[in-house]
Design a protein around this nucleic acid. Structure first.
Length: 327
DNA sequence: CATCAGGGCCCTG
DNA sequence: CAGGGCCCTGAT
């Protein structure tokens, strides 16, 4: 099917995350939906990356300790990277993986919280992260809409196989995303043969907006949250649910929590009130509880609780979650 | 076999 | 601002 592109040139450097730093809990999120662009094992993550025109293969390795952390970064590429490109890349990775995040105020705020404190210990040094670009996250957000997880995985894989590029580096073979301008010129009919349904139009319109430069991720990063929200909502096929994920994961707004979807509503009800997921509390009640109880870091607190739940499930527990996830 | 909701969003009235 | 329609799929 796809011919893989071998990346021969290796560049290596190290980054120093702020301490404490939890490698595994940051570099692998068991609740993230699996895209065929990365692999994780304890202490190591392989990840493809589109960096401008470049196709990169990345390997992150855990070094040092939680309190004196070092992140090993290996980069495979077609051509050698200049010093400037390497510095650019290091900055971008630091942003995407939140390597500079200062967790101390958050930890102090919740050190005596009966619900959250044990998770601060379990995941000490964990951050939210998003490995990809805004554009790539938008593609993911669109396949997530109104579909079960099994179907989103199938749609993403077909899209990658059709429009992505298979990269080979360090013994791994993983897909890299396509660029917006590449998908922008595809016909809607072609996209629909991939069984993405009405989402075909959203992929196209969003890709066209990026190809025309109507959205600039780097410029948006320094804009106020409401400016970002407005820009994102302006994209065809992007509504409040997707924007919430984007504001938190891509733009790092840890105070953002406006939308609670039905499946999340059931899980929050059980997590925070112990209620039967089949008769959950109302979204208003849940939002007020989360915002007041976990202020001023509702999303960080929810993230710790949420990761606790999904790691538990990965380790064989939290059986009640299964029917709510609908794999 | 039909119907329906799903990890939403757009468009219409 | 409420509600129908939308691609497809698995559950019922």
């Amino acid at each position: 099917m796809s011919i893989s592109l071998v990346l021969p040139v290796l560049t290596q450097f190290e980054l120093i995350p702020s301490a404490p730093f939890a490698f595994d809990a940051t570099f692998f999120k068991p609740d993230h939906f699996p895209t065929p662009d990365h692999v994780w094992q304890p202490g190591v993550r392989w990840q493809t990356m589109r960096w401008g025109e470049k196709m990169l293969g990345l390997k992150f390795e855990q070094r040092g300790s939680v309190d004196a952390p070092v992140l090993g970064v290996s980069v495979w590429s077609s051509a050698a990277l200049t010093q400037a490109q390497q510095a650019d890349l290091a900055r971008e990775l630091t942003y995407r993986y939140n390597l500079d995040l200062d967790l101390s105020a958050f930890y102090q705020r919740f050190q005596a919280d009966a619900h959250v404190a044990p998770l601060l210990t379990q995941f000490r040094g964990m951050r939210l992260m998003n490995p990809g670009s805004l554009y790539e996250y938008l593609m993911i957000a669109i396949v997530l809409q109104n579909a079960t997880v099994r179907r989103t995985v199938a749609m993403m894989r077909t899209l990658m196989e059709t429009y992505g590029t298979l990269l080979e580096f360090d013994g791994q073979t993983l897909f890299a995303f396509w660029l917006p301008e590449e998908l922008a010129v595809v016909s809607e009919a072609d996209l629909r043969t991939l069984k993405v349904g009405y989402r075909a139009k959203s992929f196209l319109r969003v890709s066209q907006a990026f190809a025309k430069g109507e959205i600039d991720e780097m410029a948006l990063r320094s804009q106020p949250k409401e400016t970002q929200r407005k820009a994102l909502l302006g994209l065809y096929g992007v509504g409040p649910a997707s924007v919430w994920y984007l504001l938190v994961d891509v733009f790092h707004h840890l105070d953002e929590l406006n939308t609670i979807s039905p499946w999340e509503q059931k899980i929050y009800s059980r997590l925070f009130f112990g209620t039967d997921p089949e008769s959950p509390l109302g979204v208003e009640t849940l939002r007020e509880h989360i915002l007041s109880h976990f202020s001023p870091y509702p999303m960080m607190a929810v993230h710790y609780v949420w990761e606790g739940l999904f790691w538990e499930r990965r380790n064989g527990g939290a059986e009640w979650l299964a029917p709510l996830i609908r794999l």
